[in-house]
């Protein structure tokens, strides 16, 4: 039996067991803290994502409403031109309002659908963060599993 082999093995065993107990005492709590940081970073990114999507949806919705208003203005111009042939005062205005209302209704339906998609993505993001945190925690408290 080589004495150097015995010495190396016993040194390694010593390092292994002392570091193992050190992990139990100190590193585990450090690892848990790391997992918590990881989770908060992940949730922060999901919150950014949610806000980003929300802002974009609102921008598109505004753009859509602008189109409805532009259409309405154009409609009113046409209505004014043909007013002389229209016996009911204000009926052109009402027709344009109806068209604008329908346009805004369509935009609202779109916005509701877009928000739902946003919420599904956000939900998935939160689920990812929870999963990452749970797995990190398992690894942190039982490093040999």
């Amino acid at each position: 039996m080589n004495w150097r082999t015995i010495f190396l093995a016993s040194t390694l065993l010593f390092i292994f067991f002392t570091s193992n107990s050190a992990v139990a005492d100190d590193s585990i709590s450090d690892n848990i803290a790391e997992c918590e940081d990881l989770r908060s970073e992940c949730l922060e990114r999901v919150a950014n994502l949610e806000l980003g999507l929300k802002i974009i949806i609102d921008e598109i919705y505004k753009e859509w409403l602008k189109k409805c208003d532009a259409f309405y203005k154009n409609c009113i111009k046409v209505a004014k031109k043909v007013r002389s042939r229209n016996p009911i005062p204000g009926s052109g205005w009402v027709a344009c309002q109806i068209a604008r209302g329908a346009c805004k209704g369509a935009a609202w339906v779109w916005k509701t659908g877009a928000n739902l998609t946003k919420d599904i993505i956000t939900g998935r993001g939160v689920a990812i963060c929870n999963d990452v945190y749970s797995r990190c925690l398992v690894a942190a408290v039982s490093p040999f599993d």
Partner: peptide, 30 residues
């Protein structure tokens, strides 16, 4: 054993992967 903390750190890369791309794809689809 020494690699375990590295493994934990690597989990970071898995966080939120693909979410931004997915958001952009949703945006384009919208």
């Amino acid at each position: 054993f020494l690699l375990v903390p590295v493994g934990i750190a690597e989990e970071e890369d898995e966080c939120c992967d693909g979410l931004v791309e997915e958001a952009e794809a949703t945006l384009e689809a919208a």
